[in-house]
């Protein structure tokens, strides 16, 4: 379980996060949603330690990550995996070497065992026969799946996904979303996904936190999402006039039925 308590982040005179508190549960895909500039990426970076909160605490299984020294943080970091928006694969390494990198760096496993583990996770993300290809030789979807394989190769307790669907076509997005969901449940890990893709929110929102202008405006799940009367959330979900009209038409239809 990951908990954030009163997390504030200030850049110069701009307060990007204004005291966010939330609990991210184990075995669930916890989504952080919100418009661009709402503070979701900053919150995610504060949680993983790429940014230090100005105030507040980030607790990984009740251990305060913010107060830890660099060695203690590195211990926690070896238990977390992250899927970056652009994949963040190492250009000079093949798919296999990319996925094997954390094993090479942090374990004493023999090479044959490492290769078996790499093949196991590549198979898990449905990426076969790509071991010797370089990131530039594979598609965006395959890069994302390689990123997921690298994130889970060390059996992490926590998985972070930053905009996993960006740059992907709708079908590949669904495949990546399903994969994240399956891995979360299969390995019983705490997953936090930062997204503004509504398909993903509706499919995978076990727990959803909605950020607006640095504040937590709403918290719930995919079932309670459409029942909310939070104006900012409704504006975010029904972003276009077409969707608003569709929603109103449906409401009117239901009203007439009643």
């Amino acid at each position: 379980m990951i908990e954030v308590k009163d997390v504030r982040k200030v850049f110069g005179t701009q307060e990007v996060l204004k005291g966010i508190s939330a609990v991210f549960e184990t075995g669930k895909n916890n989504l952080i949603i919100g418009k661009s500039g709402s503070g979701k990426t900053v919150l995610l970076k504060c949680i993983v330690g790429l940014l230090t909160p100005t105030d507040g605490h980030v607790l990984f299984d009740e251990k305060d990550y913010v107060a830890m020294n660099i060695d203690q943080k590195n211990e926690i970091r070896r238990e977390l995996g992250m899927l970056f928006q652009g994949g963040a694969l190492f250009d000079s390494l093949t798919v296999e070497q990319n996925v094997r990198f954390p094993l090479d760096m942090f374990t004493h496993m023999p090479l044959s065992e490492k290769r078996d583990r790499v093949n196991e996770v590549l198979k898990r993300v449905n990426l076969v026969n790509a071991n010797h290809k370089f990131p530039s030789q594979i598609s965006g979807g395959m890069q994302k799946r390689t990123g997921i394989a690298r994130a889970i190769v060390m059996n992490p307790k926590y998985l972070f996904c930053d905009e996993p669907n960006s740059g992907l076509d709708p079908q590949t997005s669904i495949v990546v979303d399903e994969l994240i969901m399956e891995i979360t449940q299969e390995y019983n890990i705490t997953t936090i996904t930062n997204t503004h893709d509504m398909n993903s929110v509706i499919a995978n929102g076990d727990k959803i936190i909605f950020l607006h202008e640095g504040n937590k405006h709403w918290e719930g799940d995919k079932y309670s999402l459409f029942e909310s009367d939070n104006k900012e959330l409704i504006d975010f979900i029904f972003a276009s006039d077409f969707l608003k009209e569709a929603r109103d038409a449906r409401f009117n239809k239901l009203k007439n039925k009643v």
Binding site: V48, L50, R77, R78, F84, A88, F106
Partner: peptide, 10 residues
């Protein structure tokens, strides 16, 4: 973000 990826790994 390759440097960030390395940092996240520890």
């Amino acid at each position: 973000e390759q440097i960030d990826a390395l940092e996240i790994m520890g």
